[in-house]
Design a protein around this nucleic acid. Sequence first.
DNA 1: GCTGTCATGTATCGTGCTGATACATCGCGT
DNA 2: ACGCGATGTATCAGCACGATACATGACAGC
Lengths: 202, 202
Amino acid sequence: MLEIAVLGLLNESPMHGYEIRKRLASLLGAFRAFSYGSLYPSLRRLAEAGWISEEASMQAPGAARSRRGKRVYRLTAEGKEHLAELLADVGPDAFDEEGFGARLAFFAQTRSDIRLQVLEGRRRRVVEQRDGMKSALARTGERLDRYTRELHEHGLESVDREVRWLTELIEHEHSDASTRPSDHPVTTVKNSEWRSPDGFKT
Amino acid sequence: MLEIAVLGLLNESPMHGYEIRKRLASLLGAFRAFSYGSLYPSLRRLAEAGWISEEASMQAPGAARSRRGKRVYRLTAEGKEHLAELLADVGPDAFDEEGFGARLAFFAQTRSDIRLQVLEGRRRRVVEQRDGMKSALARTGERLDRYTRELHEHGLESVDREVRWLTELIEHEHSDASTRPSDHPVTTVKNSEWRSPDGFKT
DNA sequence: GCTGTCATGTATCGTGCTGATACATCGCGT
DNA sequence: ACGCGATGTATCAGCACGATACATGACAGC
């Protein structure tokens, strides 16, 4: 989601559109690279909503490295508030690829308990996906030709890797949270993977 | 790319839009799942281009007015030709995530030398991406906060895994070609099990 | 027999992103 | 003096998504 990414970036410092895109690319890595065709309309929407302000940047000859840009975008007070709400909103959007990546990129600005909720929600989602893929592969795996099966197996392994990665992140988060009370970083992961065989009701 | 996926599917047998979507989802796995909002317009485009034909499969006594009939889509001769061109076109589009996945899903219908070109082109692309990520991580890795670095490292490992996967596929392709220098030319896959256009429960 | 609800089936619409394209200026090497 | 790559803003057609609407057959439970 561009909205959260732009606001998160502008929370660190005001920027030009061009710089936003560069920082975005390096921040999200190959994960996602937005184009100007979506960035500029998004900036306009955010400005109309009042989350950011749009100032023409004057030329300061001797001053800092204020390059000769045309428009500088800055997070407003409302925008700061809105960003906090977005980062703290642990709805379904926070768990899909896009939303999770955007939130993870700004975890440094996120409360610890929210971080945990996001990680666990994402993990729940990916586990669900993995199990679906696994059973689909078990059902139809024999009938697939070699290449399609390879594609599915590679995808399954990727998702499986993501589950393990998220598990590590969660464990690390737990051990971080318990640096004070206990000297043992290994906190027992309770509630580990109770899998109801037929559905997902709490 | 929906175009190649739809044509590839219809090359096996005629289908309804609904079934196309289901088969597409199971064929591409979690790799990609197109929605009706893109599928139906795509079917219309393909029909206008003449690659597929659109037949109303009305059944039952038609006293019912205001009834939406089922539509069966079938690959035309031109469509078959066009599909062959698409599968054999080893342009840049064949090497990005979308194009490669669509082509791989129909590798069984693809010539062996084209398969190799697609695999090697994709591998070249992914290696390039991996090296870019690796050097970017080496340059800025120390300055990143823990979460962003985790995101980048996980992404790098994923891409690295894909490189190794592609390498294995390529090696296997080579050994296949050498163990079977000129085998009996497997022509069109005769499907012994045919699905009727009206429902697909076997 | 009546009702709910699930799978099947076709279709559209608003919103948003991509890739291409178009400008323009700056810094720098040659 | 000249080009050329990086900086910088902006638009557009095409395509995909997610939500939504409508409709029918099957099948279970009351």
